[in-house]
Amino acid sequence: MAVAVKLDVNGTSHRIEVDDPEMPLLYALRDELGMNDPRFGCGLAQCGACTVHVNGTPTRSCVTPISAVEGQPVVTLAGLGTPERPHPIQTAIVEEQALQCGYCINGWVMTAAALLRDKPRATEAEIREGLSGLKCRCGTHLSIIRAVQRVAQAA
């Protein structure tokens, strides 16, 4: 029996019908709402590619049931900034040329944005700690850290 779930994503309210209210938020965002961010990485909350903000907190959407976020604001990478007004971390990532394949960048940007909101002048050690647990198979970690430092130093 289908259950109606209300999701507030990037400032827009959505009502979806699902068979299982324990469906991961990631599946609802991608399959039900047609979003191409966040990404499916590991499905075990170990890589970070699926990170979104729920009430401003970086959350691994691959293991978060939609029932746990119903009625709470969810922000994806698409809701963080726009092409005309990118978030400062998005700008810094481009300026540092910190992307290679780009598959993992959703998690890095979403996690860094929350870190910089809470610690605008984060030190390198705080940045490294705040971003620990994220994976990049291309090895652009150092460039990403430089991009986050660029934003922190500009604060």
Score class of each variant (00 low, 15 high):
Asp31Pro: 12
Val9Trp: 01
Trp108Phe: 07
Arg30Ala: 13
Leu131Ile: 04
Ser143Gln: 11
Leu29Gly: 05
Ile93Asp: 01
Gln149Ala: 10
Leu77Glu: 08
Arg137Phe: 09
Cys138Ser: 08
Arg85Val: 13
Ala125Pro: 10
Thr51Gln: 12
Ala2Cys: 11
His14Cys: 08
Pro21Phe: 09
Ser13Gln: 12
Arg128Glu: 09
Ser13Met: 13
Met1Asp: 15
Thr51Ile: 15
Ile89Asn: 08
Val148Asp: 01
Leu134Pro: 00
Thr91Arg: 11
Gly139Lys: 07
Leu115Met: 05
Asn55Gln: 14
His53Trp: 04
Leu134Ile: 03
Leu7Trp: 07
Ala68Ser: 10
Leu26Asp: 07
Gly133Asp: 07
Pro58Trp: 00
His87Thr: 11
Ile93Lys: 00
Pro65Phe: 07
Met35Lys: 06
Asp8Asn: 14
Gly48Cys: 01
Phe40Leu: 15
Glu126His: 15
Cys138Leu: 01
Ala147Cys: 10
Glu126Ala: 08
Ala147Met: 02
Phe40Ala: 14
Leu44Ala: 12
Gln90Ile: 02
Ala113Cys: 12
Asp37Phe: 10
Gly48Ala: 00
Asp31Leu: 05
Thr123Gln: 09
Val5Trp: 03
Thr123Met: 11
Thr51Ala: 08
Lys6Val: 15
Gln153Lys: 15
Arg128Gln: 12
Ile105Lys: 05
Ala2Met: 15
Gly56Asp: 11
Ile144Leu: 02
His53Tyr: 09
Ile66Ala: 03
Ser143Thr: 12
Val52Lys: 00
Leu134Arg: 00
Val18Met: 04
Ala68Tyr: 06
Val3Arg: 14
Val3Lys: 10
Thr111Asp: 05
Gly81Phe: 06
Thr111Lys: 00
Leu80Tyr: 01
Ala114His: 01
Val63Asp: 03
